[in-house]
Design a protein around this nucleic acid. Sequence first.
DNA 1: TGAAAAATACCTATAAATAGGTATTGTGAT
DNA 2: ATCACAATACCTATTTATAGGTATTTTTCA
Lengths: 210, 210
Amino acid sequence: MNKPYQILIADDHQMFIDGIKLIFSNHTDYEIAAEALSGMEVLDRFKTQKFDIAILDVNMPKPNGFETCKIIKKQYPDCKIMILTMYAEGQFLNEFMDSGASAYVLKNAGKAELLRALESIVNGQVYIGKQLKLIVDVPQKDGFSKSFSLTKRELEIIALLAKEKTSAEIAEILFISTYTVNTHRKNILHKLDVKNTAGLIKYASENGIV
Amino acid sequence: MNKPYQILIADDHQMFIDGIKLIFSNHTDYEIAAEALSGMEVLDRFKTQKFDIAILDVNMPKPNGFETCKIIKKQYPDCKIMILTMYAEGQFLNEFMDSGASAYVLKNAGKAELLRALESIVNGQVYIGKQLKLIVDVPQKDGFSKSFSLTKRELEIIALLAKEKTSAEIAEILFISTYTVNTHRKNILHKLDVKNTAGLIKYASENGIV
DNA sequence: TGAAAAATACCTATAAATAGGTATTGTGAT
DNA sequence: ATCACAATACCTATTTATAGGTATTTTTCA
């Protein structure tokens, strides 16, 4: 029997962490060696301890799961990372692929899938939860989009642009003036540092905004 | 012991099929029940036989792996499908997610990974080969982009549009008239059935064209 | 070698997007 | 209470994109 895999678990809800710990309590292959309530805490733990696997919540505060994942992967490339998400936010798939994580699983996946995912990643494979496959167009959770410094309204307009709407159509849908829509579009182009709608949509696609 | 899983294997190179058959020859869990050299042949086999798993090559002729996959999934939703690819074409990931397939594996993955992937998918999970994770921006293989019925020139123009170029700029780059560029753009919008450049870029992003 | 597909080019009119401004109101945080 | 920011709105001028055509030349493939 090998030494159990050392796992760090991070989520902003202690209750969820406790649930996960229960799952592993009678498992000899895996050991919850540390826990964290934020991205910062995760990085702190890594400074004093070595982990084989980190299980990170996407919506965790400062920095979020993907950002934390990238930082860890840079400093400790051997550590495998599993990203957990509450909602079936399929649009984060590209971000997941870029983050260097090894697994992407829904929180309501259940014990069996969690263990299967772990088994996969310790064998060097990438695992994506079944339910994440079919989801599209889930509205953006706030606090997450902040990292792009785009406002709620701006995200709404991007979403409508991605649906091939013109400024006039967007104005009608949102009950605002076409002038306002154009002001927003102007601001979006500046914020994302792109030249036109083509660049905007490309950026949005690459970053899972649409 | 259960009845072995009935597998259909499809690839345009017979030699590759024979290799796969060797892998399964001493396996009691899986049985290669049929083989096919093209998408059409795959669909023919399904008319007379029932399969638990279909292993499809992406670059297979008429129709290709993803298209074949979609057709099978519509008529036989219970059949699990594994997509094999020769090159680490990471940009087809979205297409994979849309196709309804359960696994996406590199051909040079080796016996162990093949079996692990199969184990995953019969358990209802989605499996993506490790090597497919890091690849970006692999140039489009010809014959594959044909499935979108976009010509080489049209793909060039899409690529330039994604780089935020205007029709006039594209004309200059390609040494052709702005009129010609606009004709191409018109044709592209029709072919992809999108209303404007936003839709075009979104489609291109989702399908790995850019 | 003949037919089909691709690439080229032109014309016109309208619709939409972009860039440059300015300015007011509401809201949330320090 | 003040400051920053978000959201709103307006104006103008110019550039770009889109839609409707037609038509010729070049490539490719059967």
